[in-house]
């Protein structure tokens, strides 16, 4: 809540306006106060003050080199093997012992190919393809993460791409056929369209379902439950600690 300084000829110092229609002994007209009630709150009546807490969403920043462990080797090998490295990589994050490479969506297929084929990378197994919906914390809401495992070197790496709703990502199915159903699931649940996918249809929901259930703005869809006379709202409408 910011306080707007009132317009005035004096340099920005707020002054109150002259009372309008003032009579000699009439009480001054004070402007209507926007505040209601004792504590100035509206809504739930939460007087604890915790209702006004605003949690800052931390910004994910890239880690500077050196990354430590085998991460440097992987990053250097990828840079060597993939010529467009500099403009494909958005940032590199090393967190809790895991390496995440944020890649531009249109380059993901090429990067994945390099990761699989290059001798010093050899990430043969794509363990998992999953989506995350960062509503409200990222303009490019939908992220797709590819978890790659190298059995030769016993390493794990994560590739992450971010697209806005309506964006597309090239499919890695031709490189990692295991991504077939996993990309279908990401499409089904988040609405990420993978171009070049052999069969992009819904896999978990019925074929004619509308909407993408695991997006954050899709409701959980529960029903209120009546128990011993009281009615409990479904889990997404209860008051819970955030």
């Amino acid at each position: 809540m910011t306080i707007e300084p009132s317009e005035s000829a004096t340099d920005g110092v707020p002054v109150s306006a002259d009372p309008v229609g003032a009579d000699f002994d009439a009480p001054a007209q004070t402007p209507a106060s926007p505040r209601k009630g004792m504590f100035g709150i509206s809504g739930t009546g939460d007087v604890s003050g915790f209702g006004g807490l605003v949690r800052r969403h931390p910004e994910v920043v890239g880690t500077p080199k050196p990354y430590g462990g085998y991460f440097d080797e992987v990053a250097d090998a990828l840079e060597e093997a993939y010529p467009g490295f500099a403009d494909a990589i958005e940032k590199v994050v090393v967190d809790r012992g895991e390496l995440t490479l944020h890649i531009k969506p249109e380059r993901i297929a090429e990067v994945a190919q390099t990761m699989r084929d290059d001798e010093s990378l050899r990430f043969e197994l794509c363990s998992s393809v999953s989506g995350v919906d960062y509503l409200n914390s990222d303009a490019r809401r939908l992220h797709v993460t590819y978890q790659l495992t190298s059995m030769t070197y016993r390493r794990r790496v994560r590739l992450e791409v971010a697209i806005p709703v309506g964006g597309t990502v090239p499919s890695v199915t031709s490189i990692y056929p295991t991504a077939d159903w996993q990309e279908r699931e990401t499409y089904d649940m988040f609405g990420v369209v993978f171009t070049g996918h052999p069969n992009l249809t819904r896999v978990l929901m019925p074929d004619d379902w509308e909407g993408h259930p695991q997006r954050k703005d899709y409701p959980l869809g529960g029903v209120p439950v009546e128990y011993k006379g009281a009615e409990i709202p479904p889990p997404d409408q209860r008051r819970v600690y955030q």
């Binding site: 899709y218 409701p219 959980l220 869809g221 529960g222 029903v223 479904p234």
Partner: peptide, 11 residues
């Protein structure tokens, strides 16, 4: 519907 009070399960 059990513990799964959501979009996917018939209640």
């Amino acid at each position: 519907g059990g513990m799964f009070n959501n979009y996917a399960i018939v209640q």
